[in-house]
Write a protein that binds this DNA or RNA. Sequence first.
DNA 1: ATTAAAATGCACTTCTGTTGCACGGCTTTT
DNA 2: AAAAGCCGTGCAACAGAAGTGCATTTTAAT
Lengths: 138, 138
Amino acid sequence: MKEIESTLQNKGIRPTAMRMLIYKFMAEKNSAQGLSDLELAFTKADRTTVYRTLKTFEEKGVVHQIDDGTGVLKYALCEPGCRCDIERDLHLHFHCNACDKTICLTEHKIPHINLPDGFIAEDANLVVKGICDSCSTY
Amino acid sequence: MKEIESTLQNKGIRPTAMRMLIYKFMAEKNSAQGLSDLELAFTKADRTTVYRTLKTFEEKGVVHQIDDGTGVLKYALCEPGCRCDIERDLHLHFHCNACDKTICLTEHKIPHINLPDGFIAEDANLVVKGICDSCSTY
DNA sequence: ATTAAAATGCACTTCTGTTGCACGGCTTTT
DNA sequence: AAAAGCCGTGCAACAGAAGTGCATTTTAAT
Ligand SMILES: [Mn+2]
Ligand SMILES: [Mn+2]
Ligand SMILES: [Zn+2]
Ligand SMILES: [Zn+2]
């Protein structure tokens, strides 16, 4: 818990109790979390607090936002050493149609995409849907 | 207009006046349209009618849905001969950060993605954001 | 202890997508 | 042609998620 505190401080975030709890919660999960997931996990806290905590985390490069196409935004902790506050890390995201979890495949970078003349790429989002390893090994 | 009528009939859709107008409108646009775009273009028609028309078109493989990450779902006509009603055509979508338009790059298929062991791909969505050709040639 | 700044909680709003139900026209059957 | 039924349309209301304004509490600095 002490190391969470210093992690947040290193990122320029004041380590309140709530923020450390949310960080801890997300660190223990291996899948991306939506606002309602966190809201459900911390019934004592207000939705707005969780919401603004995520926004703060995002600004400071602690988490990155994921649009997996389900209609609800997900968040996941950034890899240690990533500079998500400067430029997005273009890795692949996988959404399991069975367990409905979304996970980061940080080792799988989005391949370079050839575009028609005149098109300039600035960002990319690649989401693969299917069956995850946990669900395929029944 | 007669050929729109037969196009719809060939897809198993009864060609009402409203449906033909919506089809025509989308055929004239070169970018994907959101529900509110159509709602704005056809102020005489109800939002629900447009909504259900899009759903019908989608089921019958006339249009395909696009999640470009803006938070609003877009729709675009399918290519002639595509079987979107059976299996999605996995082409690239481009969203311009300048003009805010989203277009289909139907010639640019999503490359095959290597996944870790146990992961099974069923679908994929690739959206590239940046500056489109119209906006980059000022 | 005082004080200022930042974080939290509550209420409310906005936006998008979706559904229930009733009306009316078009199509099919008798 | 008349009757019956299906289907498209419109109105209203709902649901879920994201975001904002403001008062209150907590935190950190003096
Ligand atoms: Mn990720
Ligand atoms: Mn497309
Ligand atoms: Zn799974
Ligand atoms: Zn553009």
